[in-house]
Design a protein around this nucleic acid. Structure first.
Lengths: 232, 232
DNA sequence: TAGGCGTAAACTGTCAACAATTACGAGGGC
DNA sequence: GCCCTCGTAATTGTTGACAGTTTACGCCTA
């Protein structure tokens, strides 16, 4: 899933892990939508396994906050309301700001060059220029992903790349960008990259946090608009 | 465990949840030490349950990064090296800084008063005055805990109070304070509280981050000292 | 005596059956 | 007609047994 790492340890051979990965993937792909119930017999039959390993897989998903369970009533894909999504974005601002700070001193010149190429490519991208809003799951996430990886803090990388981004992707339909946002986002990306070029940790963290805060504010705008629409 | 919340939903009645809670507690209490192997048959027998629910519980713990599993070889309590602990503390600096920022605008006057009382009590505490190092799991964590709760961001509260603190408590023997640190820490707490009093988000975040960064540096010192000792 | 091989024990992984709880619908009472 | 109750079906919770893998021990050989 857009994860170019080939070296996935491929630690499986046991059905429990396999079921976990397939379930996670199904949730991420929207095959299982937020709030949807996870029937044990159905899923076990679909994956051709017994309910034992399946329950174990569901347990792991529960530990990662991807599903919620109520006793004797089954598990559901987690469903976040607007306030919870905003809470999540606040956390993302904090963590990714720190990641960007670390990257400022640790990122390698070759990676910097690659990021420059990326932004140049974005500038030529019709979807940015025409402001139609493309910044979901495309080049935008790739830019963030690479900076986070450059932080060198393995746990931080895992929290953001594996948990945070995948969770936010779940609600991407509610994270549509406000008009004019893509062009502004690209400009903010350039500010972030300039700070990294300058090897300035304070500026890098500040730039990234501003970027994410603006993005969050644009979501806020959307929500307000939708709320009005619902009243009408 | 020092969690004064009475209203724990007490959602059990199923053995899997019960096993999960008991295992988590056992790990936190040091009954099961980092790196120790989790034998399924032994634990199942000890808790008087079958291996099915137990495996489910272990799965949940794995999802929360409290245990690691290798195929056909069993699960172990997670064990972090010094670098990983430092990585964790960097993340804590980031998240708790944000929590403190949020608390600056959201904390209630009554809670502020309580924090003042707490620090005054710390100042009278013999262990702080004599600089013998008490700041592990005692009043220090309570101070942080209350500020985090005041942030109002439920997910952030969960990440810090449930995941981060409990994980760090696991390695408290390696987080012993440097000489003179308790008194300094108390002073830093006062700076944090002053910023909260002033309702100044920037100052609050900065003060908290400085506090945690200093604490991390003191750990660094300890590690360096121990490394020397090992050479000798 | 040291090293390698083979067997056996212990452990994890998986399954199908059983128990308990919940949800749903039909029937009867008010 | 509406609501409560009871019974049945469906679903989750749990168990003990079976299969596959790893590990450890002892024996044999060089």
């Amino acid at each position: 899933m857009a994860n170019s790492d080939i070296s996935q340890p491929l630690m499986s051979a046991n059905l429990s892990m396999l079921a976990f990965q397939r379930l996670e993937q199904a949730i991420m792909a929207g095959e299982l939508q937020p709030g949807e119930r996870l029937s044990e017999v159905t899923l076990a039959k679909r994956y051709g396994i017994s309910r034992g390993p399946l329950r174990e897989a569901i347990g792991r998903l529960e530990g990662r906050n991807l599903v919620e369970r109520v006793a004797n009533q089954g598990a559901r894909v987690v469903s976040l309301n607007e306030a919870q999504i905003l809470d999540l974005l606040v956390i993302r601002e904090s963590l990714e700001g720190m990641a960007c700070r670390l990257a400022a001193t640790r990122i390698k010149p070759a990676e910097l060059k690659r990021l420059h190429g990326m932004l140049d490519s974005h500038a030529r991208d019709a979807r940015v220029v025409s402001e139609k809003g493309y910044f979901q799951g495309g080049g935008d996430l790739d830019f963030h992903y690479r900076i986070v990886r450059a932080s060198g803090n393995e746990r931080l990388i895992k929290m953001l790349d594996e948990d945070m981004y995948s969770l936010l992707r779940l609600f991407r339909q509610r994270l549509s960008t406000a008009p004019g946002r893509p062009a502004q986002a690209l400009e903010e990306h350039r500010v972030v990259l300039a700070a990294l070029d300058a090897r300035d940790p304070d500026a890098a963290e500040a730039a990234m946090r501003t970027h994410i805060r603006n993005s969050r504010a644009s979501i806020n705008h959307i929500i307000a608009v939708r709320a009005e629409a619902e009243v009408a």
